[in-house]
Simulated assay, not measured.
Amino acid sequence: MQRIFFAGNIKFLRDRKKLSQEALAAKLGLTRAKLAAIEAGNTKSPQPEDYLNFSEFFKISIDTLLKIDLSKLGELKMRELESGNDVYIRGGNLRVLAISVDRSNNENVEYVPVKAKAGYMAGYNDPEFIAGLPKYSLPNLPSQGTFRIFPSTGDSMLPVPEGSDIIAQYVPDWTAIKPDTPCIVILKGQQDFVFKLVTMNPDDTILLKSLNPAYKPFPVEASDVMEIWRFYAYTSREFPEAQPEMTTILTAIRNLEEKIGQISK
C-alpha cells in the first residue's frame, strides 16, 4: 500500500511560506481546527475541494501533494517544482513568466529602468506591470527565449562600466547554469538587481562573484532568489579605455604562442 504524504506536505509548505495555521486557514476559507486536523493526519478523507484549494494555493499538483515527501527534496528541486516543473502536471507549467508581445505576436524586450526597480520586485510576474515597462525590438537576438534589459549599478563588475544596460535572457532551469556564468540575479527583499558571476553549489546555495577582485564572493540561499537572467550583451555610453601596457604585452604573448602552435602543427 502506497504511503500518503499529504498531511506532512501541507505543514511543510505552510512552514516554507512562513504562514501560521490561522493565516493559511483564512486564505483557504478553512477553520484553524480543520487545518490543524489535516496537518496532524486526523482527517483521513479531506473533501475534493480541499485538495483542489491546497493544490492551487501552493501551485503543486494533487498527485505530488499525495505521493511525494516534499521535505526530502533539496531547495533547487523545490524551486523547480514550485515553478511548474511537476512530473504529475500535464498541459503546461503552472508558473508562467509574464511577458508582452507586439502586434505580430513577437515578444518585446522590456527595459526595467532604475526608477522601476523596486516595483519590479513586487510586479515581476504581474502582466499589467510588465506591460507598462518600456519596450524595444533589438536586432540579432536568438529567436528562442525571453530577453530583458537591466541597468547596472556600481563597479563590482568592472571592466563592464557602471551604468551599462545589460541585455539578459531568462533562465527557467537554474541547474543548467555553468559555473561563473554572468547573470542578473533578482533577490527577495532587495531594492536593486545583482549583476554577478553565478555558480550553483551542491548544497543548494548559489555563489555570487564579482569580476572586480575588490569585492568578495558570497553565497545566497536558492530560496532567496526570485529570477535569474543570463548575460547576453551590454551597451554602454562610455568609450573603452586603452589597455594597460602589461595587458597589451600579455595579449601579444598569447597571440605569438597561438601562431607558434599553428606552425608546429
Rank of each mutant, 00 (worst) to 15 (best):
E75Q: 12
D63C: 04
L133S: 03
A36K: 08
I38N: 08
Y51P: 08
Y111P: 07
K59F: 02
P48R: 05
P134G: 05
S104P: 01
L73R: 11
Y88A: 14
A36S: 15
S100T: 14
R32P: 04
S45Y: 08
T43L: 12
E110I: 15
L81Y: 02
D69A: 10
I60Y: 05
V101F: 03
A26W: 00
L66E: 11
L70P: 13
L65N: 09
L28M: 04
K59C: 07
I89N: 02
T64A: 06
T64F: 07
A40F: 07
L73E: 09
G29S: 02
A25K: 00
L30P: 03
L76D: 08
R103M: 13
E107Y: 11
K67S: 11
P113M: 05
G84R: 00
F54V: 11
D69L: 03
Q21N: 00
A33N: 13
S100R: 08
K27R: 12
I99A: 04
K77L: 08
D86Q: 04
K115W: 12
K135L: 06
K135E: 06
L70Y: 06
A40S: 13
R103Y: 14
M121W: 05
A131H: 11
K77A: 15
K117G: 08
D126L: 03
S61G: 07
E39G: 08
S83V: 00
E82L: 11
G92F: 07
I68M: 06
K72V: 07
I62A: 09
A36N: 14
R103C: 10
P46Y: 07
K117M: 15
K34E: 14
E22A: 02
